[in-house]
């Protein structure tokens, strides 16, 4: 099984996770810029984080044979903090870089005016840099937030085919389908989707003739209780439910490549794993060099 996890926060994960992911078939991933749990108090904090996403974390993933890409944005939650807002002026420098395959995570957390302003500005940046947009949908008031998201995408004149609306569920999938955007599902314990529910959604799509296109399945694994192998678990559940190997590869590999490939910036030739390599002098084999 070949897997491209289109949404996973590796900065929060261990080398054990990288090893287990490789063994499970993960060969590529996208790490969206997001909230770190501990709120940032300055723009400099974002800069160091973005530098890590295009630098150290990409290097770390390569040590485990996994191609690492990222998305760059001011996340919805911190769009409410005036100390963080000026990072918007720095985003163009990062959106120009190789391996940055979308603007994200953008969208709504609490549906405030500040969030809407940052969201709209970053949709403009996605157009300017010809990048896809990765849109987070809120935990609370999700259906209304999803509808408002789709209105803003339309108002910004962004092609819905360049947008993935993420963290969908049974209640929010249809409005995104109708808008023509990509549908993202996070298989995440307790708060989001499970493999069984995901398979039921996929089966319903196939039975209604809508097929397996425009669907992205991710683990969204981060610093919370989450599972970086939930993509694999979903692939296994698909097979158990009678989907073919080709169907699984379509959803877990080809769809993410089709969506993020629109950036023209995928880096899928992972360098040969060299465990003695260093990034800015930091080897992962501490004590062995």
């Amino acid at each position: 099984m070949r897997i491209f996890d289109p949404h996973i926060h590796m900065t929060s994960r261990t080398t054990d996770d990288y090893e287990a992911m490789y063994a499970a078939g993960v060969r590529a991933l996208v790490e969206p810029a997001f909230w770190l749990g501990q709120p940032r108090s300055s723009v400099d904090s974002f800069v160091d984080y973005f530098d890590a996403l295009v630098g150290w974390e990409r290097f770390r993933a390569a040590q485990f044979g996994i191609a690492h890409h990222c998305t760059i944005a001011l996340n919805p939650k911190e769009a409410n903090d005036p100390r963080c807002l000026p990072v918007l002026d720095l985003l163009p420098r990062y959106l120009a870089k190789d391996g940055v395959v979308a603007v994200g995570e953008i969208g709504f957390d609490s549906m405030t005016r500040e969030e809407e302003k940052a969201f709209a500005r970053q949709l403009e940046l996605a157009r300017e840099f010809a990048l896809p947009a990765l849109v987070h949908t809120p935990h609370r008031d999700k259906l209304a937030g999803t509808r408002r998201t789709l209105d803003l995408v339309e108002a910004a004149g962004v092609d819905p085919g360049m947008v993935v609306v993420d963290h969908l569920n049974e209640v929010t999938v249809d409005v995104v389908e109708e808008a023509g955007a990509w549908m993202g599902f996070s298989i995440y314990p307790d708060t989001k989707m499970s493999p069984a529910r995901m398979v039921a959604i996929l089966r319903a799509r196939v039975e209604s003739g809508r097929g397996l296109g425009r669907v992205l399945v991710n683990s969204a694994a981060d610093w919370g209780r989450s599972d970086p192998l939930s993509t694999r678990r979903t692939g296994e559940a698909m097979l158990a439910a009678g989907f073919t190997e080709d169907d699984v590869e379509r959803v877990l590999w080809h769809n993410p490549i089709e969506f993020f490939g629109q950036s023209g910036r995928l880096l899928l030739d992972v360098p040969e794993t060299d465990s003695a390599a260093t990034f800015a002098g930091n080897s992962l084999l501490r004590g062995e060099r």
Partner: peptide
């Protein structure tokens, strides 16, 4: 230059591989 310099390898040219 703030956006062209970072994008230069992709937009103008690079030596393939590492």
């Amino acid at each position: 230059i703030r956006v062209r310099f970072p994008a230069a390898a992709r937009e103008i040219g690079r030596t393939p591989g590492t």
